[in-house]
Write a protein that binds this DNA or RNA. Structure first.
Lengths: 251, 251
DNA sequence: GAGTGGTCTAGACCACCAG
DNA sequence: TGGTGGTCTAGACCACTCC
């Protein structure tokens, strides 16, 4: 029951290339194109799917990124013998959505929204002056009721339409979606990976039995429409014993 | 002296889109397009650069991925106010090359090439039977003479043209390049991130003073031309105090 | 309404691989 | 030699933003 790519809300995907990719995935899943088999040549396949060749190639490129297809120049395009689709940290999704993509039920405990002044280290990350007003959100995220990551987020208040825009932020809300609705969609993040030993507070929040190291992600998030500012800085402490952290690396 | 993208061997890049991206980078670097300024409209810019609009768009998309440009539909394309180019683990490059991309001089100590039989855990990762012949390479990589990561790699011998093909592997060699020359180019890898405490052996190899945790990357590498097999499994232990580990996440 | 980026097409030519 | 993927073009139409 490989539900990996049915999780995507591809019901009516954005672009024709994406929809074509979805159709190809279905054809592979249904065995029309069997594992190891060669696909029809690109012009032929494009004709049969009713799209142009560039559009078909966009779809095929997407499936190659998912390790479902392999292209060999001068030979053909082949279905992977061991089809599997994977993704990881290289895709920027909200923490809750990421937990759902792993097939687990996301939850939140200990949500707290505060207005604070930027201390020196946070100010440097956000490119603001020390003392500038920030909104700070902290919470612990659970997967199937088990705590897996503790999150702290800082947002410059002047990037919000009103400083109080996030005061009503709720435990079930997605911060990504909320920020997008406020005209501050996030497009990219640069995450620094640091293994650290948990302190007493973190051990308590994550309900850690041992003092095994956890993985800290220090992330600077950039908005989609400007790059002169950092929209959000966050520190996420992951209990790698309870959730798998992966990165798909492409050459 | 932002040498970040002059390190790329773009001297004569592969595709016209890549070469156009390089030209755009130079125009931005030289101030022809100042930070914050709007670029000419795409048809106009394409004409002036002597390429078609799809080719120009490919170049622009590349610079957007590098955070150098921002597109706003119905408005225009703008130069980032704080141009900076970054990359991280999401790009699959050899460890030595990755160190060079950070502006540091890569080196190797303690290189060892052995022929071993697969133990249970490695066999599972490589999709081979326990006891199957593997080539195992281990070495410690340095940056500016300082050890930063200890690497262990396992390769199924039957994927090589001859089992002895890697026996002459040298300290200055790139494993990626060597494998590509042997007809086994690597295209993707799935890395699992695990913070761990160093044992005595690792502390010795990395010359660690404290027992601060290190970051273990467990990686399965997939060849470009087939997906039924795992070409290489590796464990890399990074001293995050001596080298910055990043991931660029895209939405 | 005018101008911008977002998408898609049809067709061409090339480089590579196999027989 | 013939078929395959790799690349690039010219042009069209749409959706969005702003005046």
């Amino acid at each position: 029951m490989d539900t990996n790519w049915s999780v995507r809300l591809d019901t009516e995907a954005r672009t024709l290339g994406d929809r074509t990719a979805t159709r190809l995935r279905e054809l592979i899943r249904d065995g029309v194109f069997a594992p190891g088999a060669r696909l029809p040549a690109e012009p032929e396949l494009a004709r049969r799917l009713g799209v142009s060749r560039p559009t078909l190639r966009a779809a095929v490129t997407e499936l190659i990124a998912d390790l479902l297809l392999v292209r060999r120049r001068g030979v053909g395009t082949f279905v992977s013998a061991v089809p599997r689709s994977t993704h990881g940290l290289e895709r920027l999704v909200g923490t809750g959505h990421g937990i759902a993509l792993l097939g687990r039920r996301p939850g939140t405990t200990g949500l707290r929204v505060r207005h604070v002044g930027a201390d020196a280290s946070i100010a440097a990350q956000l490119h603001v002056a020390p003392g500038d007003p920030l909104v700070r959100i902290s919470r612990t995220r659970t997967a199937d009721e088990v705590p897996v990551v503790h999150c702290a987020e800082w947002i410059p208040a002047d990037l919000l339409p009103e400083p109080t825009a996030l005061d009503a932020f709720g435990a079930a809300d997605s911060l990504h979606d909320r920020l997008a609705a406020l005209g501050l969609p996030l497009r990219q993040a640069v995450a620094r990976l640091v293994p650290v030993l948990p302190d007493a507070d973190l051990r308590d929040r994550l309900d850690l039995a041992s003092d095994a190291p956890v993985l800290l992600l220090e992330q600077r998030h950039f908005p989609a429409t400007r790059t002169d500012r950092v929209a959000l800085f966050s520190r996420h402490w992951y209990d790698s014993g309870r959730i798998d952290l992966q990165v798909v690396r492409r050459g």
